[in-house]
Design a protein around this nucleic acid. Structure first.
Lengths: 208, 208
DNA sequence: GATTACCGAGACTCCCAGTCTCGTCAAATG
DNA sequence: CATTTGACGAGACTGGGAGTCTCGGTAATC
């Protein structure tokens, strides 16, 4: 509450913060089966364990922090003025980022931690919400241009995109390739378009 | 390899097998935060730990076994002769089953184990494949009836359905309600329909 | 009755998240 | 420059859980 002295003593070591986040990402994405434990992260960062726990409440918090930093920096929301193009660009960029070496393993490891620890789960929820908000910005811009039908469920559309991403990432049965991204984006764009605008899969006369 | 005596000695206790699987599901779905460990499962089943490890190679194998048994029994693939109706029925049934008390927690716990243990991950991949096969059966039947466009990506369609399911289950930001199931089924059905059949969101004249 | 294999119980090892303590080092105060 | 404050690296320590091992007991086969 009262702070007679603003902030005496040694300051936080920014280099250590960076080293910890970088080491966490590096270990998560390591091809060999190096376990991602607090000890290995601390050792890889050249840092004491307590330095990690001084600034993050749990291992999951570190991973989520590292992950969020990456995702926000990698994917810049496009705005070409066309729903189909914007959506395709967003989904392609998202899949492409996830496909980068080590990223899938990092996503898996972070989700594992989010499922194990309730606090990390909360952070994962917040992270996912931020990612959906980025996609929603694209959709909202399209809606403002009248490219989206009135009764469209934008939340469901966003969940379809990130659902496919996470499902394939976690189960590992299929690739997150560019072709899938394009098809997925096209399908979602078609389902959001106004009924009178046409152009998607359902184009043509009404069923008999 | 050679088996001079067919099978001497005491036989496997079927009651114990059932008790173990039931206890695993019960603990996974328990509302209180009871940890799902091998010890708690063994205790709840009234069984020694070794009896579990004698028949299953890991904790994850038990959970996957219990989960697969449930899912296969709960969801019977519909066949009304109409893609939209069948798909809606399948997705509704799937969401409904997942929404039953404790099931979401069970799915989360099992996925957590699948991410932690490579062997459990393999079993999860097989489980997911079986679930997609059930959905694919519905889609293949529709394709045989000519209700599906030639260039449709059935794998992607299936991943959209199960992607939304798992994404909402694991992140926990939205409900798996019947309305979402219907909208999702309708969207996927529309994206699979032949271009000349119409009836979906894209109905109407071609864009100017 | 001897052999074989499953059973419940529980001690044990190994690994890892998170805590605690130590001696040290840097920033602010006076 | 001396003192105070707090971050730092290192590492011992606790607690819990996965998986192994052993034991005495019990059911099925020979």
């Amino acid at each position: 509450m009262n702070q007679r002295r603003s902030h005496t003593g040694r300051r936080r070591n920014e280099a250590a913060r960076r080293a910890i986040l970088d080491a966490a990402v590096a270990l998560l994405g390591a091809a060999d089966g190096t376990p991602v434990t607090i000890d290995t992260v601390a050792a890889a960062a050249g840092v004491g364990k307590q330095t990690i726990y001084r600034w993050w409440p749990s291992k999951g918090a570190v991973l989520l922090d590292a992950l969020a930093e990456r995702a926000a920096a990698e994917i810049v929301p496009p705005d070409t003025g066309d729903l189909a193009a914007d959506l395709a660009a967003f989904v392609r960029a998202t899949f492409e980022t996830a496909r980068r070496p080590g990223t899938l393993a990092a996503l898996r490891g972070t989700m594992a931690e989010a499922l194990r620890d309730a606090h990390a789960g909360e952070l994962m929820r917040a992270f996912a919400e931020r990612r959906r908000a980025a996609l929603r910005a694209v959709l909202d811009a399209a809606r403002a241009r009248g490219e989206i039908r009135a009764d469209a469920d934008l939340e469901l559309a966003a969940d379809q995109v990130f659902g496919v991403l996470w499902y394939r990432c976690l189960v590992g049965h299929a690739e997150l390739d560019a072709a899938s991204a394009d098809r997925l984006a096209a399908a979602v764009a078609a389902q959001l378009r106004p009924v009178s605008a046409g152009g998607g899969p359902g184009t043509g006369t009404v069923a008999p």
